[in-house]
Computed example of a mutant assay.
Amino acid sequence: MSGAQQTGRAIRLEGVTRRWGETTALEQISVEAIAGKFTALLGPSGCGKSTLLRIVAGLEEASEGRVLIGDEDVTARSADKRDLSMVFQSYALFPHLSVAENIVFGLKTRRVGRDERHARLAQVAELLGLTPYLDRKPSQLSGGQQQRVALGRAVISQRPVCLMDEPLSNLDAKLRHAMRTELRALQRKLGFTMLYVTHDQVEAITMADQVVLMNAGRIEQVASPHDLYERPATVFAARFIGTPPMNILPASALGEIGARIEAAAGRRLRFGIRPEALYPDPQGALEMRLTGGEYLGADALVQGTLGGAEALMRVPGQALAPTGSVLRLGLGAHDLHLFDADTGKRFELPQLASLTTRLDTPAGRPGVTTPLSNWKDL
C-alpha cells in the first residue's frame, strides 16, 4: 500500500458454463468486471452467482469457457496461483488466533518478512479502525469488527482483485448500512477490482459501478445502477430492481392508448410503470380503483386496479386515500416502459411520445397545482 492505490486488473469471463450431470448451473456467461471498479453479481437465490464467483476464484472448475484476469488465462490455474483475495460470508476467522495473527496469516504462509508484515499490519489496522483490537480473539469482537478483520486479511495481501460472497448478510440492518459505506470507500481508496456477490438490490445499487444481474444461470443485464433502474432490459430486470417492483401491465390497462401503442409496434406488448411514476390528476387519462393501501410513514403504497389489472402507486404518506376510491392518474411518456409480450425483452418505439400525449398533463403533477390535501378527493 504505502499510501498508493493498488492497481486493479480486469476479470473477463468467456462462455463460462457449469454443469453437474444434466443440471446446468451456468450457461454461456460472458462478461467483464472492469479493472479498478466495483462489480456486483446480483440475483435471487439459486441463480448461479456464487458458483460463478467460485469459478473465478478457482474453487470450482468451469465445464466450458475461459477465465482471464488481466491478460492472463487462469482457467487451469489453482486458486493460490490466481493473485486474488476472497472474503467469505462466514468470515472464516481462526478462533484461536488474535486479530493481528488472523490478518497476517496469509503473509506468513507466503513467507513475507517480519518487518514488512508488521508495517502492513499497522497500515491496515489503522485503515479499518482495528488498532485497539489487535490482541483480542475473534470471539471478543462484534459482528462488524469480525467483518473488518476478514476485510483486513484480504486488503493486507495487496492483491489486484478481491472477491466477496455476501459478506454483509450476517449483520443487522444498521450495521450493514454502515459497512456498505465503509466497504465502498475502501475499494475506491485502494483501487482494487471488486467482484461482489449479493441478493440484495440495495447493496448492489448503492455500492457498485456495474451490476451484473443474473437469473437461472444466465445474465439478464449488465449495466450501471442508474441504467438498470431507468432502462431495464427485460421484464425480470424491471421487476427485480425497485422497491416496490415495477408494475407490469397488459395493454388493456391503458385503454385505447395501449391499443394504439400495440398497433404501432405491430406486436403484443406488456407495459411497465414504476409505482412512483403514477400521480393523481383530475384530467389524467388513466383510472385506478383503490383496493387497499399501506402506510409507511413518509410514503404510502396504494393498491388498486388499472383496467382490471393489479397495480401499485406510491404517494406521500399523508395522502393515503380510502379503499373504494376512484382516482384519475397521469403518467409521463418517459416513464412508460415497453416489453415484448412473448420474449420479455425491452422494446423501443420511436413514436411513443406522440402516442401518449394524453397520458401526461404536467399541470396535474403533485406540487404544481394539486394540493396534497385534495388528493383523496380526486
Results as ranks from 00 to 15, higher is better:
L349A: 09
E310W: 12
R77G: 02
Y279V: 11
Q283H: 14
L127R: 13
R365L: 13
G70S: 08
P350K: 03
Y295A: 14
T343A: 04
Q28C: 12
V31L: 13
Q221H: 00
G317D: 11
G58S: 00
M207D: 05
L306W: 00
E256R: 14
E262L: 11
K137C: 07
G46A: 12
D73Q: 02
L121I: 12
D83S: 11
A92P: 02
L331G: 06
L228P: 01
T370D: 11
N170Q: 12
G255T: 10
M194C: 13
E101N: 06
V302F: 08
H96F: 07
A298S: 15
E72N: 09
P362I: 00
F38L: 12
Y229F: 15
Q351A: 14
R314I: 11
M313G: 07
E27Q: 15
G191Y: 08
I103R: 02
G364D: 12
L163I: 09
M179H: 02
M164P: 01
I103Y: 08
K137Q: 14
H177F: 05
V211A: 11
L26V: 13
I273E: 00
L331E: 01
A300M: 00
L183P: 04
A125S: 14
F347L: 11
E61K: 15
T198Q: 05
A259F: 03
G15D: 10
S78R: 15
H96S: 14
D200P: 00
L352N: 01
P250T: 10
V202S: 12
S354V: 02
I55H: 01
P250S: 06
G43N: 00
V155F: 04
G152M: 07
G284M: 00
R176P: 05
D71T: 13
F271E: 10
L186V: 10
A4R: 15
W20K: 09
S142M: 06
G307Q: 09
D80K: 14
G242Y: 12
Q158M: 12
M207T: 09
L134E: 04
V326N: 05
H118W: 03
G266W: 06
I69S: 04
K49T: 10
G293K: 06
T323N: 10
V315E: 01
L93M: 09
T75I: 01
D135I: 06
G217S: 10
L59E: 09
H199G: 08
Q145S: 11
P282G: 06
G113H: 01
A4E: 15
Y229V: 05
S373D: 13
R153L: 04
H96N: 14
L141D: 07
K376D: 07
E27W: 13
R184W: 02
A285K: 07
A238P: 07
R267E: 03
E294D: 13
S45V: 13
Q5D: 04
H118E: 15
T291L: 04
P350R: 07
T131F: 05
P167G: 02
R231M: 05
G36A: 08
P350W: 05
V155Q: 04
G58M: 05
I205K: 13
E60W: 01
L42F: 11
L52F: 01
S98H: 03
Q146D: 03
P322S: 07
A285F: 01
R77P: 03
T291D: 11
R231D: 11
L52S: 02
H334Q: 15
A300K: 05
E276T: 03
E230T: 14
A277K: 09
E72F: 05
K189I: 00
I156P: 10
